[in-house]
């Protein structure tokens, strides 16, 4: 049975370095217009495009993104 995967974004930790966006194979990530407490336009995902490959979670230097399984 295929597990249900979700991309979780802890936007409070994001520093908008853009690495996840650069490495995302599906161009599913972008910076949003809002600010987090540190003052960064944090990352957001397009769930339609995201294939839950966790490439973003692997490269993120601030442990913002991760794909979790149910």
């Amino acid at each position: 049975m295929k597990k249900n995967k979700t991309l979780v974004i802890n936007s409070a930790r994001c520093k908008a370095c853009g690495l996840c966006i650069h490495f995302c194979p599906k161009k599913a990530l972008s910076l949003c217009g809002e600010f987090n407490d540190m003052g960064y336009n944090f990352v957001q995902s397009d769930q339609e495009l995201c294939v839950k490959c966790n490439t973003c979670g692997t490269i993120c230097p601030d442990v913002v993104l991760k794909v979790v399984e149910d």
Partner: peptide, 18 residues
Amino acid sequence: TFREEKNFSWCPGCGHGI
């Protein structure tokens, strides 16, 4: 082990976080 509530103080993009 990991203290998720504590944001890294490294610069944006720093490899130390990885």
